[in-house]
């Protein structure tokens, strides 16, 4: 029923509405919030029926546009680097060879890897990719990256984060290096986790769980509530999701992405904040954060302060 009406409106909009119809459409949309979604769906279908769409070559099927030319350049570079790594074979199995990848502050990079895997590299990170015929190794020297690993049982995919090892066969997970250890969030499948500085048996971490591994081998497991993987990985979409975090911790999150730094007055550091922000919107966060804790914003040359 809703769909019938939505299709009717889509057809009318197509031929042009008069003022009275505009009003009626407005009323219809206001009557039930679902109407807007139904209309969108109908209009979208009608757009598929538009002139030439089916006959013209499909121009915009690439799932993601690549706006930045430097990124294209980078991808080419990395692809040839990986090809070389594979062609070069055994010599490249040793660190520190392989293809280095780094991101600047505030930069987030999505990298298709040679084997069909995808890495999304967070701000201020350094890693090195070395693929050979029988193994795929990534060294995370600094920062954070999420990996979606193409399935290949004969070529294990291992992330080296200091002494910590995270191994996946076909799965998706995030590794973040912190002082003295690493945090691993698994979004799909299972990973095997161990530290070369410890005799402890490897631990298996499955989707929906996060593990904190100290460099010397202690593993602390936490399970994620269903929304949390999205929250942990919001950085991939250029977002930060703050869920009952202290203002100081939230500022530390933001500072990862900016040369300009947020400094929180100690008297406000433990106050809780919530919300969604774009990682590039430091000012917006400073303003909102100050408002949430009843403080205000002060600026120096390279610092934004939140003070009472």
């Amino acid at each position: 029923m809703i769909d019938d009406l939505a299709c009717q409106w889509a057809a009318r909009i197509e031929r042009g509405l008069d003022d009275a119809e505009q009003d009626r459409l407005g009323q219809w949309l206001d009557a039930d919030r679902r109407h807007r979604g139904a209309l969108l769906r109908a209009q979208a279908a009608l757009s598929l029926l538009d002139r030439g769409r089916a006959l013209a070559p499909i121009e915009d099927e690439t799932p993601e546009p690549e706006p930045a030319t430097d990124r294209r350049w980078f991808l080419k570079f990395s692809a040839s680097g990986l090809a070389a790594a594979i062609a070069g074979g055994i010599g490249l199995r040793l660190w520190p060879k392989g293809t280095p990848i780094s991101t600047g502050i505030g930069e987030i990079r999505r990298l298709p890897l040679d084997d069909g895997s995808v890495a999304v590299v967070n701000s201020a990170s350094r890693l090195r990719v070395a693929f050979t015929r029988d193994r795929r190794d990534v060294e995370l020297a600094e920062g954070e990256a999420w990996f979606e690993v193409a399935r290949n049982h004969r070529r294990p995919f291992t992330v080296h984060a200091g002494p910590v090892r995270v191994q996946a066969v076909g799965t998706a997970f995030d590794v973040r290096r912190r002082d003295g250890g690493s945090e691993v969030t698994v979004t799909e499948g299972t990973v095997k986790l161990w530290s070369t500085d410890s005799d402890a048996e490897p631990v298996f971490v499955s989707a929906g769980n996060r593990a904190k591994v100290s460099d010397i081998g202690g593993v602390e497991m936490a399970s994620l509530v269903p929304a949390a993987p999205d929250q942990t990985l919001a950085w991939r979409d250029g977002r930060i999701v703050l869920d009952d975090m202290t203002l100081a911790a939230a500022a530390a999150e933001f500072n990862r992405y900016h040369a300009e730094q947020l400094v929180i007055d100690p008297s406000l550091a433990d106050k809780q904040v919530v919300g969604w922000f774009r990682t590039d919107d430091l000012d917006g966060f400073a303003t909102a954060g100050a408002a949430m804790v009843g403080g205000h914003v002060e600026r120096d040359r390279n610092t934004i302060r939140i003070v009472p």
Partner: peptide, 18 residues
């Protein structure tokens, strides 16, 4: 605004509906 942008409609047609 009463109606949705052409951009959104086109995007939904090409990338969501299928």
């Amino acid at each position: 605004m009463v109606t949705m942008s052409q951009q959104l409609i086109g995007w939904v047609g090409r990338h969501i509906l299928p």
